[in-house]
Amino acid sequence: MAVFNLNINGEQHQVDVDPDMPMLWVLRDSLNLVGTKYGCGIAQCGACTIHLGDVAMRSCMLPVSQVGNQAITTIEGLSEKGDHPVQQAWLEHDVAQCGYCQSGQIMNAAALLKSNPKPSDPEIEAAMNGNICRCGTYVRIKEAIKSVTSNT
């Protein structure tokens, strides 16, 4: 066990955990931030996507010891009032079915749009391909992402 000081959603958190514990479990089990989901644990589904700085990361394979002082953003901290353009687009397009994958999809899409505000269809597909939606909401996800790009 070791103590780590983490900057999550603009707040400082201290956790005393195994250094190899993935951020996913630090968030979910130590900090009760359960918006970040577990789907596979091996960086294959994207359900656990968070931002490290501005970059989308699979938190299930990110050991807490590698975070250092980089800022972490989770779905809970993407916007203060749930009104990030991507969140709004998701509501507008009524994307969710079961909804379990959607925090990961939203975090991944938000990071994509930050680095590439007007992605082409193939760029969207390439960037989102690591995010599985078992319910098959892909058509709406893409529409939602494209509506953000056309609004900016």
Binding site: G35, T36, I75, E76, L78, G82, Q87, L91, G99, S103
Partner: peptide, 13 residues
Amino acid sequence: KNVEGPKLVTGKP
């Protein structure tokens, strides 16, 4: 729209 949409997009438990 899905009544739980706002909770889903903000990661509520």
